[in-house]
Nucleic acid binder design. Structure first.
Length: 277
DNA sequence: TCTGGGGTCCTAGGACCC
DNA sequence: TCTGGGGTCCTAGGACCC
């Protein structure tokens, strides 16, 4: 029975990790997640088949997956606070308030309908790195240098994932917290640091940062495709691959900081983000 | 509440094509 | 010269989640 499985999981977690765990059991993924939240801090809650709506309907809409502060406020202008009230709203009215896709999603969840299958090991759709700086970056040179460092970190992540991306996105947050993105899409995926850096510089130019100071920089790729597709083999490419391979080997032995672009080598202490995985 | 890092998905407008 | 309908892709931004 599901309860037996749940007890076994909770016992195993307590024994091996030493912390309590809560588990929800229900007929859909969403209800099970909600049940586990209601079971916290250290419990087990099963929603019996047939009593789903009795459990769901009195709860506030903010308990729904996909309802954050913005959607919650929008629903409140309709006089909707509970999931029961949401279930009673005509779909067309809901669409006008929260958009087509979100309306369909919320209407379904509010009725306890959630046909999503359990998917194990869904593969990533994008890979990115970003960093908020302890002190804003005040000069164009400082921004470029940090961006190069981020490209290097991204290249390491892509290398380890064995993937590259067709679309590169630059993210810039200014000191007033306004945030912009610039992206560009290529015919072929890229994953090597020099290619990422080329693209990042072009995006930085397009971002018109000007003299504004920068609080956060991020760089990432999506439209992922396996790296190292053999379509453009050449002597040059083979050499680049060998260099990347050698650098990766050194990193494995001496840490991520052991190989960095020459431009970043200086007498200044390097800013080191913690916990680079 | 002055806000870290890494993600997913959606929307809307525009370009471009048939 | 202006006009339809429909589709895909790209770009920028936003909401949301853990």
């Amino acid at each position: 029975a599901p309860e037996d499985v749940a007890h076994a999981i909770r016992g195993a977690i307590r024994e091996r990790v030493g912390i309590p765990a809560s588990i929800g059991i229900a007929s859909t993924k969403f209800l099970a997640k909600l049940a586990s939240e209601k079971a916290k801090p250290d419990g087990l809650l099963k929603i019996e088949h047939g009593s789903e709506l009795a459990f769901l309907h009195p709860l506030p809409v903010s308990d729904l997956w996909g309802v954050g502060e913005s959607t919650r406020a929008g629903l409140e202008t309709l006089g909707v606070r509970t999931i029961a009230e949401l279930a009673a709203v005509p779909l067309s009215l809901l669409e006008s308030r929260v958009g087509h896709a979100n309306a369909a999603h919320l209407a379904a969840l509010a009725r306890g309908f959630d046909p999503r299958p359990v998917v194990v090991d869904a593969s990533a759709r994008s890979i990115s790195v970003e960093e908020t700086y302890p002190a804003d970056l005040a000069t164009r040179e400082a921004v470029a240098e940090e961006l190069l460092r981020l490209c290097d970190r991204l290249a390491v992540r892509l290398r380890r994932a064995g993937t590259g991306g067709r679309t590169v996105t630059l993210k810039v947050r200014f000191s007033d917290f306004t945030t912009i993105t610039r992206s560009s899409t290529r015919e072929e995926a890229i994953w090597l640091r020099p290619d990422l850096w080329d693209e990042a510089r072009r995006l930085l130019d397009r971002a018109r940062v000007g003299g504004r100071s920068v609080r956060l920089l991020g760089i990432g790729v999506f439209h992922l495709a396996a790296a190292g597709e053999p379509e453009q083999l050449s002597m040059g490419q083979a050499t680049v691959d060998a260099v990347v391979e050698a650098a990766e080997e050194v990193r494995r032995r001496f840490g991520d900081d052991s190989v960095i672009p020459a431009r970043l080598v200086s007498g200044r202490p390097r800013h080191r983000p913690q916990g680079d995985r």
